[in-house]
Amino acid sequence: MSRKFDRDVYVVGVGMHPFRNAHVPVRECAFGAGVAALDDAGLSFRDIETLYNGYITGFLMDGINYAKDLGMTGLPITHVENASATGSTAFREAVLQVAGGHVDCAMALGFDDLHKVQGVGTSRGGMEGIILPAAFFALWGVRRMHERGTTIDTFAQIAAKNWNHARFNVNAMRQADHEVTPEEVINSRKIAHPFTSKMAAGVGQGGACAIVATEKIARRIAAEQGRPLIRVAAAVQQSEQMTDGHIFMGAVVGPPEMTRTTAREAYEAAGFGPEDISLAQCHDAYPIEELLYYELLGFCGDGEGDRLVADGDTAIGGRIPFSTDGGLIARGHPGGPTGLAQIHEIALQLRGEAGRRQVEKARTGLAHMVGAGAVSVINILEKA
């Protein structure tokens, strides 16, 4: 099922508008992220040949209207919506346009404000419509505790790690002024047993952008800026598959096997496996997700994720750092830009520009998101 690119694709620019919980105008978030990515690449909007904008909330024509702030050059503009995987999907579509030879330079721009989400938890028939996402993840967490002996302390350690990674990320929504402890996480406001408010993804508004281009363009930019080439090693997407005894687990994340099969395809496309990944970003809306994705993405065996946490392997400085920018829990999860914020973080890490959260000798990075429905998207970058 793996697809090889017709030609190599490189990330040449990334940018963000800080994720915030302060009702910043979404148009400002989109413009700020787009301009930041163009400046980062040293390009003008006239150099962009196609634009995929990703957002969940807002109005039908917002993407077209917001793009006019960057320029009116006649380029194709396409709105992408794939729930939490919206930004990841927009990035993949931009990559495929360059890989297929349709354009030489493409932009993926995500923006959103999840304060505008309405109707979550209202029923239109069926259980999925009346159980809030927090309840789905809580049930998933309790099941893990029952089957594997996972404790609340493990969940709290994951969340505290992500809060502490975000302390050194100026774009993060939640920037604590002190080292957050697992005890502090446990003692925060209760959401749904076993989870508390400091274990839940921060939602608000923000923007993120990535520009991808051919090797010729990437080499010119790298030479001008003295930066390494960042190649897209894999950009894959799957949806859940019907199997014998299939259980429809609701519209939040889909069955765990979906992430496992997407990861297999991504590693095949990249030509290397989880043992070669330097850092990973995942859909960590609650710590139960990050814990399970350690296993489903192949970084340890089933049931062994708790040991990774206990040994500090998934913190910066550990064997496989996860959510180095704070993840959905602390960097935040505005929706449309979330997957592109992951690309932004990996690009900085591979360039060696991540400051106090820099992963030593980072050469590869994996970005994973799932979208309600359910879909799974994995993008892998490597320092060429």
Rank of each mutant, 00 (worst) to 15 (best):
V117P: 01
I48D: 00
E353C: 06
D284N: 12
S376N: 13
A210I: 08
I186H: 03
D306Y: 00
S278R: 11
R363H: 14
D69A: 13
D302L: 12
Y10M: 02
C282D: 07
D153P: 03
R357G: 13
G34F: 07
G63D: 08
D284G: 11
S2G: 00
Y293E: 14
G298H: 09
G271R: 07
A341C: 08
K161R: 06
F137I: 02
L43P: 01
I378F: 01
L51Y: 01
A310S: 09
T261N: 05
H115C: 13
G34A: 10
F272R: 09
E215T: 02
G126T: 13
V370Y: 00
G125R: 08
E360A: 15
M173G: 10
H193C: 06
S239A: 13
R124E: 13
G303R: 07
A85M: 05
V375F: 06
A67C: 15
D311I: 06
A372M: 12
E81P: 03
T324W: 03
M107D: 06
V180W: 03
A201W: 04
A372F: 06
F299I: 09
D6V: 05
Y55P: 05
N21E: 12
T262C: 15
N21I: 15
A134Y: 04
E265M: 15
P256A: 11
P228M: 01
V309I: 13
V252T: 15
C105W: 03
D62F: 06
I211K: 00
H165G: 08
E184S: 04
G317N: 10
I288W: 01
R189P: 05
L366F: 05
N65D: 14
L139D: 01
L75D: 01
I131D: 04
I217R: 09
V14C: 08
A374E: 10
P321D: 10
S376P: 04
G34L: 11
